[in-house]
Amino acid sequence: MKQRYSLSVNGAQVDVEAEPETSLLTVLRNDLDLKGARFGCGSGLCGACFVQVDGAVVPSCDTPMWSVDHKSVVTVEGLAGDDRLHPVQQALLDEQAGQCGYCLAGVLVSAAALLDTNPRPDEQAVVEALDRHLCRCGVQGRIVRAVVRAGQEPI
């Protein structure tokens, strides 16, 4: 049975109908047309679908809708707001830190959360924050450089 859920997504209040067990990822992608979070594994093991729920980074593929009612969700699309880039998104472009790019949206969500709590992370802190993310193309080195660089940009 579908239920009605009310949540904030990237700052906007939305109401959606979904089965309680349907994943937040499915609703983001299919009902709210936010394609940034990607399906990678369905069990929270790869990081491609990571979003922030009330400030905590969670796998949206493994987050049922019943658990996000009245919560605040931020996806990669909401890190900076309309047509702007968060410093860490810009840093990824500056470092050309991507190949296929499928993992990047989730990586960016984790990186932005790290920068919120630790605005000047060193390489070790970045690696620890991103260690739940997989990248098969082998861009880890560039991504870490980019996140460190984002922390060094003047605010």
Partner: peptide, 22 residues
């Protein structure tokens, strides 16, 4: 070293992959 043409979409989280086609 021209920047990748596809990367801005991917960094912004825009629909780009076959999985995103509707």
């Amino acid at each position: 070293s021209a920047p990748r043409l596809d990367l801005p979409d991917k960094v912004a989280g825009r629909a780009r992959f076959i999985h995103d086609l509707r």
